[in-house]
């Protein structure tokens, strides 16, 4: 583990990205403590403060460093609260999709027979289908709210994990240590859980990292289209959508700052994911 970190440290871009991700996560967790306003509490909002530019000191007596939006929300507070929702959705969807996908992929690789092609054809079919389309349909059917949104994100993403887990498990299964475990003989469940699964985890963690970023982007897209969470709890996507109509009138901050926050988060997670991939991939090892 120490060696892993030493190798990670050699790529300073990845170190900065990791620091950014940590900072964003910390800021999102601590949002109620470090923001001047709870943007979800309608009592705090004053329409007199709406659409004010960055630096404006509003009725609350504090400066809105990133300006305010059309409802008079402090954008800095709204962005941190929005990041909270985006991260929650991304991580929850990523984790559930990882669990389901890994289980399906390893099951397919391990079961063989008719189960293997049955699972993998469904997965392949879904991979050939744009994730956003599937998520759109599901949200439209299931309605708004956190649970339907997570279901939509998971459905759109588990197939990536299933593919990855299947590939890793078929490769690992060929190795002698799995055969040695079967030859002992150890019970099938033990072989899968203690021998196969731990050795399939590295690629899954890499895909998981990148998929969290994808889930955040997907959630933002759905919210932007008005299909995400209710407008009372705006995530980053909805903040961007809300500010969109004011872009032409020069009030660009309402969309631009949440957009920048979103991009920084997604890019940083992807850079971390890339570095993890490089480090887990023995072929790129020097």
């Amino acid at each position: 583990m120490a060696g892993f970190w030493r190798e990670y440290r050699e790529n300073w871009v990845a170190v900065i990205a990791l620091a950014v991700v940590s900072l964003v996560v910390a800021a999102a967790l601590a949002a109620p403590l470090i923001t001047p306003q709870d943007p979800y509490d309608l009592a705090n909002l004053n329409l007199m403060d709406a659409r004010r530019p960055p630096g404006f000191v509003g009725s609350g007596g504090y400066a809105h460093w990133l300006g305010t939006d059309a409802q008079g929300r402090d954008l800095y507070s709204a962005i941190l609260y929005g990041l909270r929702i985006s991260l929650q959705m991304g991580i929850a969807a990523g984790a559930v999709a990882l669990a389901i996908g890994a289980a399906l992929g390893i099951l397919a690789a391990n079961a063989g027979g008719k189960i293997e092609p049955a699972i993998m054809r469904v997965v392949d079919l879904q991979l050939s289908f744009p994730a956003i389309l599937l998520a759109l349909v599901l949200v439209a059917v299931l309605g708004q709210g956190r649970v339907p949104l997570i279901i939509a994100l998971v459905t759109a993403q588990y197939a990536y994990f299933a593919r990855t887990a299947y590939g890793a498990a078929t490769a690992e299964r060929q190795k002698d240590y799995v055969e040695a475990a079967r030859a002992t003989p150890l019970p099938g469940r033990r072989v899968v859980l203690r021998h196969l699964l731990p050795n399939c985890l590295p690629p899954l963690i890499v895909v998981g990292t990148v998929q969290v970023a994808n889930a955040i982007a997907l959630e933002a897209t759905l919210s932007f289209l008005g299909l995400g969470l209710p407008p009372t709890e705006p995530s980053l996507g909805m903040l961007i959508a809300n500010g969109f109509q004011y872009m032409m009138s020069g009030r660009t901050w309402i969309s631009v700052y949440p957009g920048i926050a979103l991009i920084i988060l997604i890019v940083a997670i992807n850079v971390v994911g890339d570095q993890l991939r490089d480090q887990f991939n023995p072929r790129l090892r020097r």
């Binding site: 002698d176 240590y177 203690r194 021998h195 731990p198 050795n199």
Partner: peptide, 13 residues
Amino acid sequence: VFQDPFGSLNPRL
């Protein structure tokens, strides 16, 4: 006892 001592032991155990 298998041929390849690098493949026959679980690397994570």
